[in-house]
């Protein structure tokens, strides 16, 4: 378990590397939007997990979509990891009552295996001033059949690309996440991206069998990104979502992949084989933007450890670090406290 002092250092390390810190807001995934909806478990979900939200009745949910960048500037059209944090309101669906969270991003893997890796990453992947690569340098890259350095976006003066690349070049475990993050693009809609809860959890079935699993949300509308060669638009995702939900609900399927012996259970940098059994656990239906965006878009505080009987955390050190780090971050911005159980809620 990562202590609160380490968690504070983790949050401080993130804040120290922001281009423009935003006191009172989330240090990363700062810009977001809250959405209301409900989740219906599939017929087979209860065979794999006894958790309350997989029993088959309608469960009210609050979802927060976000851009990964930290800071108050909104750049929807920039290539960036997006977040989808989902709260399942249990036992009657009261918003401040017992709940469980599922936190996911569009990145399929993480770039650090543990807290030590993460600290080193924050040291190497610092914000650096960026400028357009000279045409001659680009030609030299082309002659070497080398991936060109991305042109900075309009108004982009610093980024962490060079540092992240340097880290990945040194540590092979980080290469997949860094490479995928560099290629990730911008979704045309928050509802047109796949979101992965990168950590392994242990789920328990009605017979007491425990299985290692990883969850992901797959958009029913399909995956689509914007044209990377077009000038990016800074603000469109919230309006697009509002307009979309005004016309028709948006849906996601919750897929659960079951790991096998030998799969990386405690290492979020390692993907599992696509050959693992995938189970449809249910359908999320998003109906409207939350009316109170301060409460449901900003103050709402998620935590990957807000779990219910039937789902347990794995030994993943990053997952363990996130528990306290999310709480430290919440306290710093005055978000809603971490309630894990019904007893806590009372």
């Amino acid at each position: 378990m990562t202590g609160s002092s380490v968690a504070k250092q983790l949050v401080d390390a993130i804040i120290a590397n922001l281009p423009e810190p935003a006191p009172g807001l989330r240090p990363v995934h700062t810009m977001g939007v809250g959405v209301d909806g409900y989740f219906m478990a599939s017929d087979v979900a209860r065979n794999y997990c006894i958790a309350e939200h997989f029993r088959g009745h309608r469960v009210e949910v609050s979802v927060r979509f976000s851009n990964g960048f930290g800071g108050p500037k909104q750049h929807d059209g920039w290539s960036d990891v997006r977040g989808m944090a989902t709260r399942f309101h249990l036992q009657g669906g009261v918003k401040d009552g017992p709940a469980t969270d599922l936190i996911a991003t569009t990145l399929g893997e993480f770039f650090a295996r543990n807290v030590e890796d993460f600290f080193e990453f924050t040291k190497i992947a610092r914000q650096h001033p960026v400028q357009r690569e000279s045409p001659w340098r680009k030609i030299l890259d082309m002659l070497q059949l080398k991936e060109p350095v991305r042109d900075p976006y309009p108004k982009e003066t610093t980024n962490t690309d060079a540092g992240a690349l340097s880290y990945a070049n040194r540590y092979r475990f980080a290469q997949l996440a860094v490479f995928e993050a560099a290629q990730i693009g911008a979704p045309v809609s928050y509802t047109r991206a796949t979101y992965h809860a990168i950590h392994t959890f242990m789920v328990e079935d009605p017979h007491g069998v425990r299985r290692p699993v990883r969850f992901s949300w797959q958009p029913v509308a399909g995956v689509r990104t914007t044209d990377p060669t077009a000038t990016p638009v800074d603000k469109y995702l919230r309006h697009e979502l509002e307009e979309r939900l005004r016309r028709w609900p948006a849906r996601f399927m919750l897929m659960m992949t079951i790991g096998e012996a030998g799969d990386a259970l405690d290492d979020p940098t390692k993907p599992w084989s696509a050959r693992r059994v995938r189970v449809v656990m249910g359908t999320l239906t998003l109906t409207n933007l939350a009316k109170d965006q301060v409460a449901d878009g900003e103050r709402i505080s998620f935590n990957p450890w807000r779990l219910v009987p039937g789902i347990e955390p794995s030994g993943d050190p990053i997952l363990h670090a996130r528990r306290c780090a999310y709480e430290v971050s919440r306290e710093m911005r005055g978000g809603c406290p971490f309630i894990r159980s019904q007893a806590d809620a009372k």
């Binding site: 991936e147 350095v149 070049n169 040194r170 540590y171 290469q175 860094v178 490479f179």
Partner: peptide, 10 residues
């Protein structure tokens, strides 16, 4: 596990 790679050469 470690190297002096250049991911841009992928």
């Amino acid at each position: 596990s470690f190297g002096h790679d250049d991911l841009r050469l992928l």
